[in-house]
Amino acid sequence: MFPGDLNVLNTLGMVVDITLVTYVIYKLITVIRGTRAVQLLKGITVILVVWLLSSLFGLRTLQWIMSQAVTYGLLAIIIIFQPELRRALEQLGRGRIFGRNITPEEENAVKTVEAILKSMKYMAKRRIGALISIENETGMNDYVETGIPMNATITSELLINIFIPNTPLHDGAVIMRNNEIAAAACYLPLSENPFISKELGTRHRAALGISEVTDAMTLIVSEETGSISVTKNGDLHRDIDEETLRAMLEKELLLTEDKNPSSLWQWGGKKDG
């Protein structure tokens, strides 16, 4: 091997080394982003800058103090950053720290799915009637304006509280838009389909009605049976279990697959309409 080849290999190794270190530092920053560790890192940076300046200008007392801070700082960092370090190690163990970054929109969608599932499960178990419509590409401003504006972050507790019987907002539908509750107590158009089962009540007819005029996905909890139903594109699917509902919500909100009528309902279920 010639000396020129060694120089090329050394240069390539340095480039790879620097790239890997930069990537690791970037990933660590993404882990602590939004936590109190960011402010602590700023404090550490100030200490290091003061230490360098004191060394440069010969400020011996200040240099000694900063040296002691740096010497014992490693132990302090481990103690102070213990929650962040544990979080980073957990993500490393799950293989997530070096995986694809989740965008804020995807993170909000995941939280929305979990909030809806938790609230639907709670209300179904206690037979609390509910009607939730998720806006898609077709605007629902006309129906949002019939209700009470909220523009609130979606949580399971808020959804449950809205539909508790005899509360001001329980009668009507919740309309979700961009992973937020746009409005509650909204009025949805009733379906005029003559073939709808006579056993279905106003909530199911409203859910079918909105699915006939928009591309919204609408969830229903029956007050009589506690069963969960879903409507979209004029189709009503009844008695949906939790796993099927999760798959439907992930497809609708996380865009895990192409959203078309034939693929949306591939999980089966009891279909009317």
Rank of each mutant, 00 (worst) to 15 (best):
D5G: 08
E84C: 01
Y143G: 04
E106V: 08
S191P: 06
A173M: 06
E223I: 04
T45F: 14
I148S: 10
R203T: 05
E224L: 08
T61L: 15
N166R: 12
S263V: 07
L264N: 10
T155K: 01
L208Q: 03
E252D: 13
S229H: 11
Q68E: 06
V221E: 04
L158F: 13
H237N: 11
Y187D: 14
W64Y: 12
L9A: 14
P168L: 05
F98K: 07
G172E: 09
P83R: 08
G129W: 00
I97Q: 03
W51P: 00
N193E: 13
I160N: 08
N233V: 03
S156G: 15
Y26T: 11
N260E: 13
S191K: 02
L20Q: 08
V24L: 11
K27S: 07
P168E: 03
A184F: 00
M14Y: 07
I134Q: 01
I154C: 01
L56W: 10
E135C: 11
L85I: 15
R126C: 01
N179K: 05
D142V: 15
V221R: 04
V24A: 15
L131E: 06
D5N: 09
A88S: 14
Y23C: 12
L28G: 15
R100F: 11
T214A: 07
E199T: 11
I77E: 05
L75T: 10
L159T: 02
Y187Q: 14
L131Y: 01
E157H: 12
A216V: 04
A130N: 07
I116F: 07
S211N: 11
G226Q: 05
D235S: 12
V46I: 15
K111I: 11
I102P: 00
I240Q: 06
L40N: 09
Q91G: 01
Q63G: 09
T19R: 03
P3A: 13
S191Y: 02
I240L: 13
K270F: 08
G201Q: 11
Q82V: 07
F163E: 03
V49I: 15
I97K: 04
G73Y: 05
A185M: 02
K118A: 14
I78R: 04
N108S: 15
D215P: 05
I162E: 00
H204A: 13
A152D: 07
L245K: 09
D241M: 07
V8I: 15
P194K: 09
F2M: 10
D215F: 03
A115W: 09
K121E: 15
R100L: 14
D215T: 05
I162A: 06
S191R: 02
V46Q: 06
T22C: 10
T22E: 02
E90H: 10
A185T: 00
K270V: 14
I160Y: 12
S227C: 02
G268K: 08
L236E: 07
P3T: 06
K118Q: 13
L255Y: 07
D5Q: 13
Q91R: 11
V213G: 01
L89Y: 12
L264V: 09
Q82Y: 12
V31Y: 00
G209P: 03
H170T: 10
D5V: 13
S54N: 14
